[in-house]
Design a protein around this nucleic acid. Structure first.
Length: 448
RNA sequence: GUCCCCGUAGCGCAAUUGGAUAGCGCGCAGCCCUGCGAAGGCUGAGGUUGCGAGUUCAAGCCUCGCCGGGGACGCCA
């Protein structure tokens, strides 16, 4: 148990809901969800959150792309936006909308149509994201809308607060956050110039949302701690958010932004170039269907956040041995098999006397099980989910070794007491394996 | 140019925050199923932890400098 039960929010995935997930987001989900599980196991009060970027320019871009595809599907001539989303899924959605809504979006002013179709599209994508994440056992307690930060007036409030502190200024028609006054190297635009974007509600940059959001987390909702899971490409944003939080009077020690490195997809050693434009794009969904949810999740969570993951499709598919998740699951299923057999024989772990467990392999297994709480605490303290995966492998190995050396079931009545003791032992081992796998979000199967 | 991550056995990765003989999986050379699941167990080969200095009783881990790989430095998300 921790010294103090903290109210912790873990926010993860939070990708733009404008397209399917790729493997990197899968890593984010595996990390975040596992971390949340671990913190709960360590005795904390945890809330899991997905931040939906449903505000501003990305909705516009997505909406404009979708509108164009929709219009085409209705036989109308509509120019496709230059920086639009070219993925086939957008065209597919455009067709769906054409069938479902008919002329509806063509009968309203274009700006309104783009906005409405964009929002409708995002809703559909979010539903799809949710389904993909569910497959991987990645769950959330709350889906938080970025737009709400602006519509509720919270952004205006923190903006004013920064302004009062002299940290906001206008230049080149844009509004800037004076990060240099807080020791950073550059200032950053917080509200874009009208020359760049016409629609007022699309002018706030991501930084604007991030600042309002951190205030919402720590001041409004009063979490003791806010943990973010971000990809390496966002590491440059960290100092700005922290600086802004500090300027608002928040204790930055309550904020932890975890940065994980990229996932490279490979096929037989060759890098698979992921490009939304060219269409050579392997979605997380396809990967899960191909490789299996347990294998994908285990792989993504078993490596330290600091190391880049090379995910080779050939290896992951063809040689399942390469993925130790089966090794661990096999240990669990093996125990389940013995227990089933034991029940058939009428043997029971009831009243098993652990004092009879004196074999070196038995003691080793007990020792390994006793490490579990220590590992959970280590992972919770350091926010390092990968320890659980490695521990699970080691526990499975210890069990397999025990299994070879010590027979559990015996038909000899003279062994009855030892059998009960060993049944008790493996029942415990099964539970610990299931617990470890549960934290990782991987199934603990009774049979394989 | 500045900043972040990585470099550990042929390959993929660990190493409980600086501690004793650096571990695990795959692969490789062998061995073990006429009794509980061989998706398993056992034995063996394979390491100057990228290179060079430094700090320390002690460095894979900390500091500095190189080399190599990846990422970030937008009125993009």
């Amino acid at each position: 148990m921790p010294a103090r039960r903290e109210k912790i929010q873990v926010e993860y995935v939070s990708i733009n809901p404008t397209g399917p997930m790729h493997v990197g987001s899968g890593r984010n989900g595996a990390i975040g969800d596992t971390l949340a599980n671990i913190l709960i196991a360590a005795g904390h009060d945890v809330q899991r959150e997905f931040y939906i970027n449903d505000n501003g320019s990305q909705v516009h871009h997505f909406g404009a792309s979708l509108f164009a595809r929709y219009a085409h599907a209705r036989g109308k001539d509509e120019p496709f936006p230059e920086d639009g989303y070219q993925g086939a899924y957008v065209a597919e959605m455009g067709k769906q909308f054409a069938a479902e809504y008919g002329e509806k979006f063509l009968q309203m002013p274009r700006a309104q149509a783009v906005r409405e179709i964009g929002r409708a599209g995002i809703e559909i994508v979010v539903t799809a994201l949710r389904a993909t994440l569910e497959k991987m056992n990645v769950r959330f307690d709350n889906w938080f809308s970025e737009r709400a930060l602006f519509e509720s007036g919270l952004f205006d409030q923190v903006f004013q607060s920064l302004k009062d502190k002299g940290l906001i200024y206008d230049q080149d028609d844009a509004t800037w956050f004076a990060a240099t006054k807080l020791g950073l190297e550059k200032d950053a635009v917080i509200i874009r110039s009208p020359n760049v974007i016409a629609e007022p509600d699309e002018r706030p940059t991501y930084l604007a949302g991030d600042i309002a959001y951190v205030w919402n987390k720590l001041a409004v909702r009063a979490f003791d701690r806010a943990i973010y899971v971000w990809g390496a490409d966002h590491h440059g944003d960290v100092p700005r958010v922290l600086a802004a939080a500090k300027a608002l009077g928040l204790d930055v020690a309550r904020i932890t932004i975890l940065i994980y490195q990229f996932v490279n997809l490979k096929r037989g050693g060759e890098m698979v170039r992921m490009s939304k434009r060219t269409g050579e794009f392997i979605t997380l969904d396809e990967l899960i269907d191909d490789v299996g949810a347990d294998a994908v999740r285990f792989m993504l969570v078993s490596q330290s956040l600091n190391s880049t993951i090379d995910f080779d499709l050939e290896i992951a598919k063809q040689q399942s041995d390469v993925n130790p998740v089966y090794y661990v699951q096999y240990a669990h299923a093996r125990i389940a098999g013995i227990l089933t057999h034991a029940a058939e024989l009428g043997a029971s772990p009831q009243e098993g006397d652990v004092k009879l467990l004196t074999h070196a392999a038995e003691l080793e297994l007990i020792r390994e099980m006793l490490r579990y709480p220590e590992i959970v605490e280590l992972a919770a303290t350091n926010l390092e989910p990968h320890h659980l995966a490695h521990y699970a492998i080691e526990l499975a190995g210890t069990f397999h070794s025990f299994y070879k050396q010590c027979r559990v079931l015996s038909s000899d009545p003279a062994d009855a007491a030892l059998t009960r003791a060993r049944l008790k032992l493996i029942l415990a081992a099964k539970q610990v394996l299931a617990n470890a796998l549960g934290l990782i979000g991987v199934r603990a199967p009774e049979t394989m």
